[in-house]
């Protein structure tokens, strides 16, 4: 019995050393991975400040010899970045508003109300989620061209006017809210609309944040749709806009990298500021769906 604690201490020390070694090994793996993840962005930014000559120099330099703004001057001359930023922001804004408003309404109704044809209508929502969006694209394009709405902001927002994903996701969230709440509200004399707007809707803030992040990330990165409906450079988004750089500047990498840096900057800044909300939002959309 007397030797017990001593043994334990010795064992603890022995266990301590491998644990520290294990932690170091884990960090080594994670850091190597992190370097791989960050390097392309660092390289993009560093290249954007080099001269064309320096960018193709062999052996390559890591930091620019002199930090030049030529790439940025050139790329902002050929691409209307102000308009690209505006279009992208407007696209994201309207898609989020539509997704939040319409999906909240429908998500609440599907979760908390009973009505005829509910299952069939909900099946409609689910089937949209199962199908590849490309099956809708040609007819959507034809509709817009018949409405004479190509090359407009409306065209960019069009497929996102309603969100099947948002409806499904928010329905799951409303289902998780206790029914006692709506019953208490009913006893207090709230009608269904008031119960929804005043009692339940405010409780979905986390889910709405998550849906907003999800919608923003995918609207921002979507390229096929903006390329299809908006050929006019003044009406393009960042994604589609920098695609046009490739043809013009095949070998002028500092210019292309400057364009890419400008295209990634706004979302990157928002991400760095709200990293936790971003990641938790994405995790929530993934685990609920």
């Amino acid at each position: 019995m007397e030797r017990g604690p001593i043994n334990h201490a010795a064992g603890g020390r022995k266990r301590g050393a491998p644990a520290a070694r294990k932690a170091r090994a884990v960090h080594a793996v994670l850091i190597a991975g992190a370097v791989l993840m960050i390097f392309p962005f660092v390289w993009m930014i560093l290249t954007s400040f080099k001269s064309i000559g320096e960018s193709v120099q062999i052996p390559p330099t890591f930091l620019p010899n002199t930090w030049l703004m030529d790439g940025y001057r050139e790329v902002t001359r050929v691409l209307p970045f102000g308009k690209l930023y505006f279009n992208t922001l407007a696209l994201i804004f309207f898609r989020i508003v539509c997704a939040v408003v319409f999906s909240s309404m429908a998500g609440f109704a599907f979760a908390k109300l009973q009505f005829p044809l509910k299952r069939l209508l909900f099946f409609l929502v689910l089937s949209q989620l199962m199908l590849p969006i490309q099956i809708f694209i040609i007819p959507q394009y034809v509709m817009l061209s018949k409405l004479k709405q190509l090359n407009t902001l409306f065209a960019l927002v069009f497929p996102g006017l309603v969100s099947a994903f948002g409806t499904f996701f928010l329905r799951q969230f409303y289902l998780s809210l206790p029914n006692d709440l709506s019953e208490a509200a009913k006893l207090d004399g709230c009608n269904i609309g008031q119960t929804f707007l005043r009692i339940l809707f405010p409780l979905t803030r986390t889910a709405l944040m998550a849906l907003g992040v999800f919608t923003a990330v995918f609207a921002y990165s979507d390229m096929m749709w903006p390329l299809i409906v908006n050929m006019n450079i003044d009406k393009m988004t960042l994604s589609a806009g920098i695609n046009s750089l490739r043809g013009q500047f095949t070998t002028q990498y500092p210019t292309i990298m400057a364009g890419s840096t400008l295209a990634m900057a706004p979302m990157m800044v928002i991400y760095l500021l709200f990293q936790r909300q971003f990641i938790e939002g994405i995790a929530l959309t993934g685990t609920k769906a």
Binding site: M37, P40, V217, S221, I242, N243, S260
Partner: peptide, 14 residues
């Protein structure tokens, strides 16, 4: 998570 918030167009360029 970084690449998720960067447009694939910019990623492809680099």
């Amino acid at each position: 998570f970084l690449p998720m918030v960067v447009a694939p167009a910019a990623i492809a360029m680099v």
